[in-house]
């Protein structure tokens, strides 16, 4: 399934540029040594804007939870219904979540707790998007 294209804005450009280089980066506050995702203009803990950086992740994670979407509001995805939308916890910090369609995994047959690794898929306009593949 092909996701909507992505038009990186100034704020999100580092995330999307890294994805095009097949690297997963997550916003990190250097002062708090704490990741946050989705990214924000300031650290949610200390409020600092200056100590935010983009930190490269290991690209490994675990399936935390999942649902199956049968009635999707996004037009480009409607032909692919039903499909999995899983929540991945990053090994680097299990408090950080990312969504995944779990490409290759059967619909509604998702092993909670299974290991996954990041892959990068082209979206409708070619921008690469982080996705996750079950490894065991």
């Amino acid at each position: 399934m092909v996701k909507q294209g992505v038009l990186p804005d100034e704020f999100s450009k580092p995330f999307w540029d890294a994805a095009n280089d097949e690297r997963l980066v997550i916003q990190n506050c250097k002062a708090c040594d704490r990741l946050q995702h989705p990214p924000l203009p300031a650290c949610r803990r200390c409020g600092s804007e200056d100590s935010l950086e983009w930190k490269e992740m290991s690209g490994r994670g675990t399936i935390y939870n999942h649902g199956v979407v049968y009635d999707c509001p996004v037009r480009l995805l409607q032909d692919d219904q039903p499909f999995n939308v899983a929540v991945i916890m990053l090994d680097d910090d299990p408090g950080i979540q990312m969504f995944s369609h779990l490409p290759g995994a059967p619909v509604d047959d998702v092993p909670a707790g299974a290991s996954v690794e990041v892959i990068f898929e082209a979206s409708a306009n070619g921008q690469k998007v982080p996705e996750w593949r079950v490894t065991g």
């Binding site: 996701k3 294209g5 992505v6 038009l7 999100s12 989705p38």
Partner: peptide
């Protein structure tokens, strides 16, 4: 839309209702 801005895309590309 065929494409969406990068910041909301981080959360919304997966089409969850």
């Amino acid at each position: 839309e065929d494409a969406i801005p990068g910041t909301p895309a981080i959360r919304n590309l997966w089409g969850a209702p």
